[in-house]
């Protein structure tokens, strides 16, 4: 059976900080599939799946015949109706890229806080001024009755979901009543199969809407 270079894990870890777990996983799965088809995607899943559970889920998606992430930006756009400002916690480049063109007139900020190493200036440069960076201390300045919070959900079972730890660092009982909408955007088609390393559990009831 083929193997993949061990350095792949290191490069994946760098990329996932700046593109997001799911967006990076789709990028790697596509490239690996181009190089060696489903067989090599299976190898990728075997080698890195337990270390990167979102990659495991995306590889499983690929092997079941899916060829792209499920990105329903229209549903998120609808949930943002009436909002003037949106604070995003966590990063998923494929998903934000699809959403941002729809949010004409809505100010968008990204919480520059992550448990994973991120070069925030480089991330910011990808959005050419469309997205402001906000640190944890200033994030509450985005609160308001026309403000929304959005984070990415990595699968759920109808009760519990997996989110980035940064979400739990920010969300609290006080914050929940300071934003009109608290949106969870599910970026996976199924719950995670392996231990959710890098992620934490939170009840779906944390969100005013899960999309």
């Amino acid at each position: 059976m083929s193997t993949l270079p061990p350095e792949l894990a290191q490069s994946f870890a760098v990329a996932m900080g700046e593109l997001g777990f799911c967006s990076t996983a789709w990028l790697y799965v596509r490239v690996v599939a181009q190089a060696g088809g489903d067989e090599l995607v299976t190898v990728l899943r075997e080698q890195l799946g337990r270390t990167f559970p979102v990659l495991d889920a995306v590889a499983a998606d690929w092997l079941s015949g899916q060829r792209a992430p499920s990105v329903d930006a229209g549903a998120v756009f609808s949930a943002c109706h009436g909002l003037e400002r949106l604070l995003v916690v966590g990063l998923e480049a494929d998903f934000l890229d699809a959403l941002l063109p729809l949010l004409d007139g809505v100010e968008v900020a990204l919480l520059s806080y992550s448990m994973v190493d991120v070069d925030w200036e480089r991330v910011s440069a990808n959005y050419a001024g469309r997205v402001q960076l906000v640190d944890l201390a200033a994030a509450q300045e985005w609160a308001g009755s026309r403000s929304g919070l959005l984070t990415f959900v990595y699968g759920h079972n109808g009760h519990l979901s997996h989110v980035r730890p940064s979400w739990l660092r920010f969300i609290g009982d006080d914050i929940r009543t300071q934003f009109r909408s608290i949106l969870g955007w599910n970026v996976l088609r199924a719950p995670l199969y392996v231990y959710p390393r890098w992620l934490v559990e939170t009840p779906l009831s944390d969100f005013s809407e899960v999309l």
């Binding site: 003037e84 509450q140 609160a143 308001g144 009755s145 026309r146 403000s147 006080d174 009543t177 009109r180």
Partner: peptide, 18 residues
């Protein structure tokens, strides 16, 4: 008013519940 920390409780319409 929204329950915000005092330094953020500005008197703008967005800082109140609807």
């Amino acid at each position: 008013p929204l329950r915000l920390p005092p330094h953020l409780a500005e008197h703008t319409s967005d800082r109140y519940f609807p």
